[in-house]
Amino acid sequence: MAWLLALLQTLLFIASAPLLAGWLKKVKCRLQNRRAPSLFQPYRDLRKLWRKEPIVAHPASWIFKAAPYIVLSTTVLAASIVPLIAVNLPTAKIADVVVLIGFFALGRFFLALAGMDIGTAFGGMGSSREMTVSALAEPAMLMAVFTLAMSASTTNLSVAMNYVLHTGLVLRPSFVFAMLGMMLVAVAETGRIPVDNPTTHLELTMIHEAMILEYSGRYLGMIEWASQIKLMLYGVLIVNIFFPWGIAQNFSPEALGFGALALTLKLAALTVVLGLSEVLFAKMRIFRVQEFLSFAYLLSLLGMLSHIILEVRH
């Protein structure tokens, strides 16, 4: 029963990820005084891509073809271990939050290899930049996660959320810093403005898009879907770790329904924040990204230090 519920939750997760992308688009268009496409446009785009004939460049090896499958399956697996509308599901035990970061790293590793596979300058440039940005983001992310893990003395996401639920609404300076750090990391890792611009195709400024420039058809569809899931994953991590209230603690239909409603509202609000920041800031030069990410690391480090100094009982 619990395993079935976990499977359903994962399916719900990956099915609703394009909807979140549509909502983000809506928010941004609204803020920029443009007419927004329908909320369901991302689904139509994905369907179109899956039906099209994919084109593969001549020098491509099997890695180029395998990478989208690996990226999508690691992302889906990552989605399956993050509690979405209910905690205490059995899948959370398979992997903890450190492994979750490992999943992202595995997907990124193959995508970067695929970028190098064709042997063009764009692919290599994209791979190099993507790996550099993620290498700088990783310590900030882990530091933020460690702050949580040390407070809850666990790295299991479900147990950690339970811990935050049961301690009640207390203002913890460490959590505030960790959340800010994690939000900055999320912006970098999901390739949003100001680190990267997912809508640009100007060759010299793109990071993620340069790496996947050669993909088309269903391969591109898989990568797009995976990055939508990844965006939602970071959103869910932030709202469910730092504001877990409303999440279902038992598996009764009312609790689950309430959990889904609460999550939708929280995510919608977070997306508005992201949309605002995307509209207000301009994209940074690539060598400014390190400063952005060191700031994120600094915030996470402050979170860790304030946990150690202020919150641990001696």
Binding site: K52, E53, P54, I55, V56, A57, H58, K65, T120, E214
Partner: peptide, 8 residues
């Protein structure tokens, strides 16, 4: 559909 090979 089967993938088609083309120049990069």
């Amino acid at each position: 559909l089967e993938a088609r090979r083309a120049d990069p």
